[in-house]
Simulated scan of single mutants.
Amino acid sequence: MSDIPEPVRREVRQEANFGCAICGNPIIEIHHIVPRSEEEHNDPERMIALCRNHHELAGPQAEGITPDQLYEYKKDPYNSDLVDYDFYFESETPLVEFAGCKCQLRDLDEMSILSVNGEDLVTMSYSDGVLQFSARLYNQEGDLVAELNENEWIAYTEDVWDLTYNGNQFKIWHDKRDIGIEIRYNSDTDRLFMRGNFYKDGALVRATPSKIVFPGNNQVIGCTFIDCGGALALSTK
C-alpha cells in the first residue's frame, strides 16, 4: 500500500480535476515526477495524477514522457475546469443498478453500495456531475489485492489478473474467468451498471446482472434504495 498522505493525494487529484492530467481517464495513479529513488518525498508540487498507461510511459526507465512535459501537463491538465469523461452524469440524480438493485444518487450524496461483514466494499459519492468511486477487493485468502479511493488506483499486486478501462467500461479481474468488478455506463439512459465477485473473510458474494448471491443460499433481488445513505449490508458469517 502506498504511504502518500491522503491530503496530498486529494490535492494532486483536485489539481488535475479528478482525471489523468494527460488524457482525462478517471482511473488514476499518483506519479512522482522526481522519483523517490532520487529523493524521498511526497511533495504535491512534484507529483501528478496519471492513468495507468501514462504512468508507465512516465517511469524513469520508460524514456517516453519527460519531467518537463509532466510539469506542463500539471499546469494545463486535460480536464480543464470540469471533468469531461464517460462517467460524467448529465442528470442531477443518476441511477446506479447493481445486481438488479437500484440505488439513486443525488448531488452531494455519498452512499455505501455494498457492505459485507461491516466493511464497505463499494462506495460512491456524487457532486456537480462528477462520480467518485471507491472499492476494496480481497482474494479468496482474505488478502487485500486491489483498492480504488475516489477513482485513484492505489493498490495493484500480482494477484490481480488485469485491469482495463475503455470509454464507458471499467473492469478488474481476479483471474481470466473471474471478474472482480465491472462498471458500465450508458449515457443514453444515464445509468451505471455494476457486477462482480467480492470475497470477504474467505466467503464469496457474487453480484450477477440480476441478483446478489451469498453463502447459505441467500439472495437479494430487485431492491431500490433512495435517500437512505446506504444500500446492501450483508453478512457471510
Rank of each mutant, 00 (worst) to 15 (best):
residue 206 R to K: 15
residue 5 P to T: 04
residue 82 L to I: 14
residue 49 A to V: 07
residue 205 V to L: 12
residue 100 G to E: 06
residue 79 N to L: 04
residue 150 E to K: 13
residue 233 A to G: 08
residue 95 L to Y: 02
residue 210 S to C: 07
residue 77 P to A: 06
residue 152 E to P: 04
residue 112 S to M: 06
residue 149 N to D: 14
residue 195 R to C: 13
residue 201 D to T: 08
residue 182 E to M: 05
residue 198 F to M: 01
residue 170 F to R: 07
residue 190 D to A: 14
residue 16 A to C: 08
residue 72 E to L: 13
residue 178 D to E: 10
residue 102 K to N: 13
residue 58 A to Y: 02
residue 184 R to K: 12
residue 40 E to R: 05
residue 21 A to Q: 02
residue 15 E to R: 15
residue 192 L to I: 07
residue 81 D to M: 07
residue 220 V to D: 02
residue 227 D to T: 08
residue 58 A to E: 00
residue 104 Q to M: 12
residue 21 A to W: 02
residue 157 T to S: 15
residue 139 N to W: 04
residue 223 C to D: 11
residue 191 R to H: 11
residue 75 K to M: 15
residue 39 E to N: 03
residue 118 G to Q: 04
residue 1 M to P: 06
residue 124 M to S: 00
residue 120 D to N: 01
residue 99 A to I: 08
residue 195 R to Y: 13
residue 83 V to M: 10
residue 55 H to V: 03
residue 195 R to I: 14
residue 210 S to Q: 11
residue 92 E to Y: 07
residue 188 D to S: 14
residue 141 E to P: 07
residue 73 Y to K: 08
residue 131 L to P: 09
residue 166 N to F: 10
residue 50 L to G: 01
residue 131 L to A: 14
residue 56 E to R: 12
residue 128 D to C: 14
residue 51 C to F: 03
residue 231 A to V: 12
residue 62 A to R: 04
residue 212 I to V: 15
residue 125 S to W: 01
residue 179 I to P: 09
residue 230 G to Y: 00
residue 179 I to C: 11
residue 109 D to Q: 00
residue 159 D to L: 09
residue 41 H to N: 04
residue 75 K to R: 11
residue 170 F to D: 06
residue 215 P to D: 05
residue 224 T to H: 12
residue 43 D to K: 02
residue 223 C to K: 11
residue 226 I to L: 10
residue 71 Y to C: 02
residue 136 R to S: 10
residue 58 A to L: 03
residue 159 D to P: 05
residue 18 F to R: 05
residue 85 Y to N: 14
residue 166 N to L: 08
residue 230 G to P: 05
residue 155 A to C: 07
residue 182 E to G: 06
residue 184 R to G: 02
residue 162 D to I: 04
residue 205 V to K: 08
residue 30 I to A: 05
residue 204 L to N: 00
residue 6 E to I: 15
residue 55 H to S: 06
residue 26 P to R: 00
residue 180 G to P: 06
residue 111 M to W: 06
residue 192 L to Y: 05
residue 38 E to I: 05
residue 231 A to R: 05
residue 227 D to Q: 10
residue 192 L to G: 01
residue 62 A to L: 03
residue 184 R to D: 09
residue 60 P to L: 09
residue 198 F to D: 00
residue 198 F to C: 00
residue 136 R to G: 00
residue 55 H to K: 07
residue 170 F to E: 03
residue 39 E to T: 02
residue 153 W to H: 12
residue 235 S to D: 13
residue 72 E to F: 14
residue 34 V to D: 00
residue 33 I to D: 03
residue 99 A to W: 06
residue 228 C to L: 11
residue 143 D to S: 14
residue 172 I to A: 08
residue 90 E to S: 13
residue 75 K to Y: 12
residue 211 K to I: 10
residue 213 V to A: 05
residue 19 G to E: 04
residue 177 R to Q: 14
residue 145 V to Y: 03
residue 233 A to C: 11
residue 96 V to W: 01
residue 229 G to S: 12
residue 72 E to M: 12
residue 156 Y to I: 07
residue 25 N to E: 10
residue 127 S to V: 11
residue 216 G to K: 01
residue 18 F to Y: 13
residue 2 S to L: 07
residue 211 K to A: 14
residue 56 E to S: 09
residue 32 H to W: 01
residue 8 V to I: 15
residue 108 L to K: 09
residue 36 R to N: 06
residue 14 Q to E: 15
residue 56 E to G: 09
residue 211 K to T: 12
residue 162 D to T: 08
residue 77 P to G: 02
residue 69 Q to D: 11
residue 161 W to F: 15
